[in-house]
Structures are given as C-alpha cells and as structure tokens.
Amino acid sequence: MEQGTVKWFNAEKGSGFIERENGDDVFVHFSAIQGDGFKSLDEGQAVTFDVEEGQRGPQAANVQKA
C-alpha cells in the first residue's frame, strides 16, 4: 500500500485526487473509499491506498483513512 495526502475531493461529484509520497497525483473515486457511511475525503487528510490502472490512467483503490 502507498501513503498519501488528499489534494482535493469534491463530495458532490464523488471524486478528487490524492498526492502520492512518491510519484504523480492519483485520481480517487468515492467507490474506492473503504468504510461505512458517507464516503468522502477531506483536503489534507492522510490516507493509505493501492494503485490500479483505470480507464484514464492510474487511480486509487482500497482507500483507507490513515
């Protein structure tokens, strides 16, 4: 798993970007967020995640709040 920080997340659209510790920013969709309840992330929040190849390039998967 990688570690990173939420660069921004739009709760209305359900997507945003995570700033990786090593590498380019990666797209995140709300469906990749693990946990119960409303799936959203806050700017500056620390997260851990896997990276998968999506239709438009790398994207975060199995996102967990650190």
Rank of each mutant, 00 (worst) to 15 (best):
A46S: 11
A32M: 06
E19P: 02
W8Y: 08
N10P: 00
L41V: 04
Q59W: 11
V51P: 01
A11V: 12
F30H: 05
R20E: 02
Q55S: 13
G37M: 07
K13C: 13
V6I: 08
D36L: 13
A32E: 03
A11M: 10
D42I: 15
V6C: 08
A46W: 14
P58Y: 09
Q3L: 12
G4E: 02
V47Y: 01
D25V: 12
G35F: 09
A66V: 15
D50G: 08
G37Q: 06
A46T: 11
F17P: 00
K39W: 07
S40H: 09
N62P: 00
F17E: 03
S15V: 15
G57Q: 03
V63A: 02
K65L: 13
G4Y: 00
V47Q: 01
K65I: 13
R20Q: 06
V47L: 03
N10L: 05
V28K: 02
E21N: 11
G57S: 05
Q59T: 08
D42W: 14
S31G: 06
N62F: 07
V51D: 02
A11T: 11
A61F: 12
G4A: 02
F49L: 04
N62Q: 05
T48E: 06
Q3M: 13
A32F: 04
N22G: 10
Q3R: 15
G54N: 08
D42C: 15
R20P: 03
D50Y: 15
M1E: 09
G44M: 03
K13D: 06
V28L: 07
M1N: 12
S40E: 06
M1P: 12
V28Q: 01
G54K: 07
V26A: 00
F27M: 01
I33S: 04
H29P: 03
A46I: 13
G44Y: 05
L41P: 01
D24V: 13
G54L: 07
M1I: 11
F38S: 06
Q55R: 15
V63T: 00
Q45L: 08
Q55Y: 13
E43A: 15
D50M: 14
G44H: 07
E12Q: 14
F49K: 00
Q34V: 14
N10I: 05
E19N: 09
D50Q: 14
A11P: 11
K65F: 11
F49I: 00
G14S: 04
K39L: 10
G16L: 04
I33M: 04
F30S: 04
T5N: 08
D25C: 15
L41M: 05
Q64C: 09
I18P: 00
E12T: 13
A11Y: 11
H29K: 04
Q55W: 13
D25I: 13
E52S: 09
A60C: 03
A60Q: 01
D50S: 14
W8N: 05
D50W: 15
S15C: 15
Q59M: 10
V28R: 02
Q34D: 07
F49Q: 00
Q34A: 11
S31C: 08
I33R: 00
D50H: 13
T48C: 12
E12F: 13
E19Q: 14
D42V: 15
Q34N: 10
L41W: 04
E12G: 10
Q3I: 13
K39G: 04
I18T: 01
F9E: 00
Q64K: 12
Q64L: 09
E21A: 13
A11E: 07
R56D: 08
Q34G: 08
G57V: 07
E53W: 15
D25Q: 12
Q64D: 05
L41R: 02
A46K: 13
F17M: 10
D36V: 12
S31E: 02
K65N: 08
P58S: 08
F9L: 01
F30R: 07
Q64H: 12
R20N: 04
S31N: 06
K65R: 11
R20G: 05
S40N: 06
R20T: 07
E12Y: 13
K39A: 06
A60F: 02
L41E: 02
F27Q: 03
E19D: 05
L41N: 01
G54T: 14
